[in-house]
Nucleic acid binder design. Structure first.
Lengths: 240, 240
DNA sequence: GCGCCGCCTTGATCCATGTCAAGTCGATCC
DNA sequence: GGATCGACTTGACATGGATCAAGGCGGCGC
């Protein structure tokens, strides 16, 4: 019998790709074992909702693989993506049973889930998890506030460059030198637009403009080569 | 000898105006006494910085009275106010000794301060404080993400109306009926502009436009009367 | 009272970005 | 191969809000 990929991961937290960055990162062996015993994996196919705003949400989770978005939508259909969730990012809110955002799988997603109640109890008793959770919350808060600067003050070009640099950073590429970097954009043009508070056409135009200026190359629409990251980052010298 | 207002407050947490909303809100008597023993008051005059970005910050604090802002500034001087802090709001980040934002006193400020290290220890041992802190962090995160929707998607008029309704809500007015409401704007036009991602002229024009439409009256530039809050809120029917 | 100074308002104009409308490109299916 | 479809790009034009500029108004010192 074939073991599914999910089952496979279940067997082995030690080799989990997000072991050292997710909610379990600051845990000692004892806490780690408890988390291990509680966890269960869940797959969500690309395009599907993980949870909808206002919905009851009785799990919290870490993203093991894939990309998700947090978003809010106005009644007349304007949408703002308020967060892009990458592997190791945390989903859900301990101490609250309903969801404030729409959470959508952008790609196929593997989630490492915990039922909320037992997880909350564990947070109470396990100081490593507790500290990590608090740190995650404050890190997210700082990130959200930084994004407010982007949404409120930056030009369309600066927004695009900021986004590209964010992807470069989160790609955690080993190279330190100013080698050309190739990145796969985790979001479609439409999702980028929504994340950056722009329209899809403006995103597309700015990407073309950066290409014309030699700051990026477009291998495909979603695959970008940055010949010189420091030159791209220099576009932000007035922002930041 | 005259006792200053700060000294006066020091003597009596029980009658503290933010007792039931600040970091101490979920504490039992024992925790409360510990906080009480640790706390010290600090006054900051209007216009002065509480802390600057990158600065070392060895205290955390609750706002007892007054208004402060969190903000970020680009190197070329564009500024985004990322948060408006009102009485009971929390300043600082346990587990981190430096400050990510500029924090400024908009009005004269009374802060209830705790040295960070002992406070962190108390967070470890006192579950009421710990829970409150986590809740505060997640509430702030939700608020920040809601603000991202405002910055990214709403029109200037919707932004202004959202701000006015925010002030109404935080004013915690006792009336439930649709009585006319009078509010004092905590921020100048300039600060409103920065908070809403607009320019001062646009803020001013939108305020005038709301006045012409009979949705608000301007007793002075900073003192607003809202004859019918539900009619004002109806301006947001497409947003939200 | 008068002059000064911040803060706010209003008007005229501009421009970055949105909107509307065609394409183009690449993948998939038959 | 060609039809189809979704994702992206490009062009032409419109516009909301920014920018530039000129007052108005209220508080404060003298």
């Amino acid at each position: 019998m074939k073991i599914s990929r999910s089952e496979d991961l279940r067997l082995d937290c030690q080799h989990c790709p997000v072991r050292h960055r997710a909610i379990c990162a600051a845990s000692d062996d004892e806490e780690f074992d408890k988390l291990n015993a509680m966890k269960f994996y869940k797959s969500v196919p690309a395009g599907q909702a993980v949870a909808l705003r206002g919905e009851k949400l009785d799990v919290v989770a870490s993203i093991v693989s894939g990309v998700a978005t947090l978003s809010k939508t106005t009644v007349d259909g304007r949408m703002q993506i308020t967060g892009m969730l990458l592997p190791s990012d945390f989903i859900g809110r301990p101490g609250r049973d309903s969801c404030e955002h729409d959470i959508s799988a952008v790609t196929d997603l593997t989630l490492c889930c915990f039922r909320r109640r037992p997880f909350e109890d564990l947070v109470e008793s396990a100081s490593g998890i507790r500290k990590r959770l608090l740190d995650i919350a404050f890190d997210e808060l700082d990130a959200a506030r930084n994004w407010m600067l982007l949404l409120g003050c930056l030009t369309a070009r600066e927004k695009i460059v900021s986004f590209l640099m964010l992807v470069v950073r989160r790609s955690a590429l080993p190279e330190d030198a100013d080698q050309p970097v190739r990145i796969d954009l985790p979001l479609s043009r439409e999702a980028m637009a929504s994340y950056l508070g722009l329209t899809i056409e403006t995103v597309s135009r700015q990407m073309s403009s950066l290409r014309k200026d030699g700051l990026i190359e477009l291998e495909t629409a979603r695959r970008v080569i940055i010949p010189d990251t420091s030159r791209l980052e220099a576009e932000l010298e007035n922002a930041e």
